[in-house]
Design a protein around this nucleic acid. Structure first.
Length: 451
RNA sequence: GGCCCUAUCGUCUAACGGCUAGGACAUCGCCUUUUCAAGGCGGUAAUCGGGGUUCGAUUCCCCGUAGGGUCACCA
């Protein structure tokens, strides 16, 4: 059997993480069976659809690497639905119903499905057998008019016409399935295999929604924050599925190979940003230096983009300090940990003192000694190993903390920063000396008698 | 409320009916260290409750409880 799956979003909003996972699982299942992955835009609700959403949806999916093999849009297929509506009316499965509109925009005449009031048994691949008595569904509406089909009708017709073999969708559709099966039977269409995925939940355990949880549930949010698509794919795959081994990191190809629809969890999974962050850090770590550099360019400030030398030296440091590329702006800002590479912010002279030996005089003596050692270094020697070896003996002799702490604070104006050798290297000889002078100056203004 | 689904550490989850209930994230501690991170090593932490079935239940059944989904001329 040639497997055909579909992802069928409606363009009424952004793609959220739950949708990403639904798309992923449908994609994986199709691909691992050498099948077809169809993207179908379900835009039968004219009032809510927007083409911007459709464009964004397609863009998001391609960014994730979930390429669809076929594409369709329900609004392009109105005539087809119309044909089926007529067929249903002719064979007695549906009828035109006179109505009293309850809301604005409602019709005086709609097309209702004649409910046979039977028990439908669904054999869900994930949930097993689910039995539903469709009697309480009543004669539900399948179209507002011959040219305006409603969701259920359009879905059934499309799945039939497109030869969808596996309907993989979120659990919220489980309650819709019985009525879709009723329509399908009235059409004499074969029944696809159903697999209803557990929901992706917000921390409050409710279904992800923009109204309730804001934009933090949208894929766009994470794209803009600078998460890698492979991280998102990996993370989302692990919500509701696992390989049965201890492996946590998977490429898309590995997922295609190892994914098992039957192993998908039944219960909903809460979206856990910590795990996403960890996965993304792992992927960032795997990036080549060159690739990392390319990725971060859109996220770094102008002044760094135009300073190639500094940019290159900063690369390994930046890589270790972020969850996502979007964190870079804060780290490189005036208040950030690496902001000192651009400007030395003002700081209290107090923090120049090493806590275990808080003596200004000694602090200053060490700074001056270090300055002298550094001044002897040529610009060609201004590399981290060379800087280290030139200061190390002195630091060992007088106490590493006593020497290195004041130097580091002098260079950065901060209590927390990379090591002083790295800092000196980043700043260059001239600026390093200048900042040591500034530190000494600060101490002088507090203890003028020292000299 | 009716119908449907679900239930293992805080979170994601593993465990042919037979284990000291395993892993990952988070958290905590230790090591390393001039600081912060990173890194290394360890620790704390779970089978919703009650009945069955069984020599034996996380696992199977029933009843509760809790959570969720769905009840549109939205998808």
């Amino acid at each position: 059997m040639n497997v055909i799956t579909r992802f069928a979003p409606s363009p009424t909003g952004f793609l959220h993480m739950g949708g990403v996972r639904t798309a992923l699982f449908s994609y994986l299942y199709a691909k691992q069976n050498n099948g077809t992955f169809a993207l179908r835009i379900e835009d039968t609700d004219k009032a809510r659809n927007k083409t911007e959403w459709e464009t964004a949806l397609i863009d998001d999916l391609s960014w994730l690497g979930l390429k669809h093999d076929t594409f369709s849009r329900q609004s392009d297929r109105i005539e087809i639905y119309s044909k089926y509506i007529q067929k249903l009316i002719i064979n007695g499965s549906a009828y035109i119903s006179k109505e009293i509109p309850k809301e604005e925009g409602q019709r005086h005449e709609v097309i209702r499905f004649k409910n046979p009031n039977k028990v439908v048994v669904i054999n869900d691949l994930i949930r097993g057998e689910v039995r539903v008595d469709t009697t309480d569904l009543g004669d539900f509406v399948i179209a507002r008019s011959f040219t305006e089909p409603v969701f259920h009708l359009a879905v059934v017709v499309d799945d039939f016409e497109m030869g969808i073999t596996h309907v993989i969708r979120a659990e919220e559709h489980l309650s819709n399935t019985p009525r879709q099966i009723l329509i399908l039977e009235a059409l004499g269409a074969p029944r696809p295999v159903y697999a209803h995925l557990p929901l992706v939940l917000a921390p409050d355990k409710s279904k992800l929604s923009k109204r309730k949880h804001g934009e933090t549930v949208s894929l766009t949010y994470y794209r803009n924050k600078g998460y890698l698509p492979e991280s998102i794919i990996n993370f989302v795959a692990l919500m509701g599925w696992n390989p049965g081994t201890d492996q946590e990191l998977f490429s898309l190809d590995e997922l295609i190979a190892k994914f098992k629809l039957e192993k998908v969890q039944k219960g909903g999974a809460i979206f856990n940003i910590n795990k996403l962050n960890w996965i993304n850090r792992e992927y960032i770590r795997k990036l080549s230096n060159h690739s990392f550099a390319d990725h971060i360019v859109p996220f770094i400030p102008e002044w760094l983009k135009t300073n190639d030398g500094l940019f290159i030296k900063l690369l390994p440091l930046l890589r270790k300090k972020i969850n996502a590329f979007g964190d870079l702006a804060a780290i490189l800002s005036q208040e950030g940990e690496l902001g000192f590479v651009k400007d030395l912010k003002s700081y209290e002279p107090d923090i120049l003192r090493w806590k275990k030996n808080p003596d200004f005089q000694i602090t200053q003596r060490h700074l001056l000694a270090v300055k002298k050692l550094l001044e002897n270094l040529g610009k060609g020697d201004w590399q981290v190993p060379k800087l280290t070896t030139s200061l190390w003996p002195y630091a060992l002799e007088h106490g590493k903390g006593d020497v290195l702490w004041p130097l580091r604070v002098a260079l950065t104006g901060q209590e927390r920063s990379p090591d002083p050798f790295t800092c000196a290297n980043l700043l260059g000889k001239e600026e390093t000396i200048r900042r040591i002078d500034i530190a000494c100056q600060k101490i002088l203004t507090i203890h003028p008698t020292n000299q």
